[in-house]
């Protein structure tokens, strides 16, 4: 019995790590620009499919990953350049303040359609990245665990650590926080605001790409898995209040684990309970786990 629980826990942690990575992308974009990519999950889907095809074609995993990241980086750059920044010229008069939600969702639809055309509408299995077979298990303390899941958790932890390093220990991270605080002041301080913003979206899309590469072997992939990941990553980022990176880490891990157990107990509707829980949570803590509510007073 304990074995089963531990196995579920590890699966939950693996998915939680994926959600955290995807949500970090939403967080960083929202931090710097108060906008984000509503197709984050679809970027993940593209990453998963590309990496699957490249690995099946016999390209070594590391090279495949590199190619996927280059493609996703370009996608992120294009997204900011072509469908987010141009909205600025309309100011408040044109359309709505939230046009970016619809333009990024529009790109997501186009990506889904392209994926349907290239890979078909059915589900695919991606070959494992680290181990020899999908069901390769390793015995730790007498319990069988999937190697793939353990390594996904480890790799995600490294990426998250690197992300924190970038954000809190580098000049670039400080630039992001300065832009977030006040773009005009940042410009006066000599920060290239546009480049920072572009980089933020590139990074967000790289995080989706890494998530996609990692998640491919854990689940079945099809062109419409993106929406589910977008929703869950948004939920995780909301638990962290979109402002607290630690909250997102905790939120992601909790969400993944809660989902794994909830799926175990109710295979029909298991994936719904964590989502409903987050919605209710938002009613009581609208600004997330750690942030204080701020009054809108000018």
């Amino acid at each position: 019995m304990l074995d089963t629980y531990l196995q579920i826990l590890v699966s939950g942690l693996a998915m939680g790590a994926i959600y955290t990575l995807t949500a970090k992308g939403l967080f960083i974009a929202h931090l710097a620009t108060h906008k984000l990519n509503f197709g984050q999950g679809d970027f993940l889907m593209v990453g998963a499919f590309l990496s699957m095809s490249l690995i099946i074609a016999g390209i070594p995993v590391l090279l495949a990953a590199l190619l996927v990241l280059i493609a996703l980086g370009l996608l992120g750059w294009g997204l900011e350049r072509l469908v987010i920044r141009p909205l600025d010229r309309f100011g408040i008069s044109g359309g709505s303040t939230y046009s970016w939600i619809l333009t990024t969702a529009g790109v997501a639809l186009i990506l889904q359609n392209i994926a349907e055309l290239v890979w078909g509408k059915s589900s695919h299995y991606s070959p494992p990245l680290f181990s020899e077979g999908r069901d390769n298990v390793i015995e730790i303390a007498g319990i069988n665990m999937f190697v793939e899941e353990i390594l996904v958790i480890g790799f995600a932890a490294v990426v998250v650590a690197f992300f924190y390093y970038m954000l809190f220990r580098t000049r670039w991270g400080r630039a992001v926080y300065t832009v977030a605080f006040n773009p005009e002041a940042a410009m006066l301080l000599g920060i290239n605001v546009r480049r920072t913003v572009v980089l933020v979206f590139v990074l967000a899309s790289l995080l989706a790409g890494i998530s996609g590469i990692l998640v491919g072997p854990l689940i079945t992939i099809h062109p419409h898995i993106g929406l589910m990941f977008t929703i869950k990553a948004l939920a995780v980022a909301a638990i962290g209040g979109f402002s607290n990176p630690l909250g997102i880490l905790i939120g992601g891990v909790l969400f993944g684990v809660a989902e794994a157990f909830s799926n175990y107990y109710d295979s029909a509707f298991g994936d719904l309970y964590p989502l409903i829980f987050v919605l209710v949570f938002l009613v009581f803590r609208p600004s997330g786990l750690f942030s204080e509510a701020q009054a809108d007073v000018r």
């Binding site: 303040t97 939600i101 929703i231 948004l234 719904l272 919605l279 009613v283 609208p286």
Partner: peptide, 25 residues
Amino acid sequence: LVALRTRGLYLAMATLAFGFIVEIL
């Protein structure tokens, strides 16, 4: 009621989740 406590982005997320939940159900 969820909308009351949230704004903008959160609201978009909450309604997206609502639609998703109804679709699954």
